[in-house]
Design a protein around this nucleic acid. Structure first.
Lengths: 139, 139
DNA sequence: GTGTGATTTGTTATGATATAACATCACAAC
DNA sequence: GTTGTGATGTTATATCATAACAAATCACAC
């Protein structure tokens, strides 16, 4: 259902993917750009094009509520994944949950809606921040 | 769980809410601004402040994947609603679904994540566009 | 009705995110 | 070697959002 493209990853897409994978947490296009200025990349369109290629292959996701991008943990499910975003520490955890997916699919069917992509983003507090009494600063 | 504020809606918030309700589909902050220039509103911060007030009251929602805002259909559930967005005709339908909500809550509990807000956005094709053979133009 | 504080509003400027448009390059197919 | 396609570089600009500060308005005690 995803990752249909088996052709070789273009150079810039590979650079961006590597950057995101190392980064670990979501990065904005401009953070990626800043991180790759030494590698011949100098302008936003280059980043956005590379991101488009990664998104098409399921190798990265856009986190809508952060206007940011992450390398993908499980490319096989890129059309129905989700993110849990801690508002205290900024950590983002990707998940794929069959219960949520089936509930969403049932809903879409009931509404006679042909789903192509599902965005699920949970904003809240992660366990680590709750356990430390919420005094963790954002970053 | 939402709409805790019972104080009177400020003038600009009321203007923006009325605009969104008439508009029917999601509008960007700048579309709202353009629609209200005749009413003494002349700059983006005024719109964003009014939107913040509406969001806090559950009278409007932000559609993350469109960077746009809609008036709310059912204020009682504003922390766990969803949108079905047709990529062909641009229509947006709001929904609240207990199955999806409970699946998300179960997932969050399993992940030990304290959910404050849930974003669910389905992108795809609405029944009307499917039935008309996808030849509907975007707008 | 006057003072006081809180909220709302107006205004200018700027920051942050994303894309249009067009030229060039790399490479495979023929 | 020409042609077609996809990738890349570059400049400029469109779009979305907020910082910072001043002024107006409102609620309410006195």
């Amino acid at each position: 259902m995803a990752s249909q493209q088996n052709s070789k990853l273009p150079k810039n897409a590979a650079l961006v993917h590597t950057f995101l994978a190392k980064h670990g947490s979501p990065a904005s296009a401009y953070e990626i750009l800043d991180g790759l200025r030494g590698k011949g990349i100098s302008a936003p369109p280059t980043i956005y094009r590379a991101l488009d290629q990664l998104l098409a292959r399921g190798l990265a996701h856009r986190v809508e509520s952060l206007n940011a991008f992450v390398a993908c943990d499980h490319p096989a499910h890129d059309d129905a994944n989700g993110f849990a975003i801690c508002q205290d520490c900024g950590s983002v955890r990707e998940f794929t949950d069959p219960e949520v997916v089936s509930a969403v699919n049932a809903l879409a069917k009931a509404q006679d809606f042909d789903v192509r992509h599902v965005t699920i983003e949970l904003a809240g507090q992660c366990a680590a921040c709750r356990d430390s009494g919420s005094e963790v600063s954002h970053g």
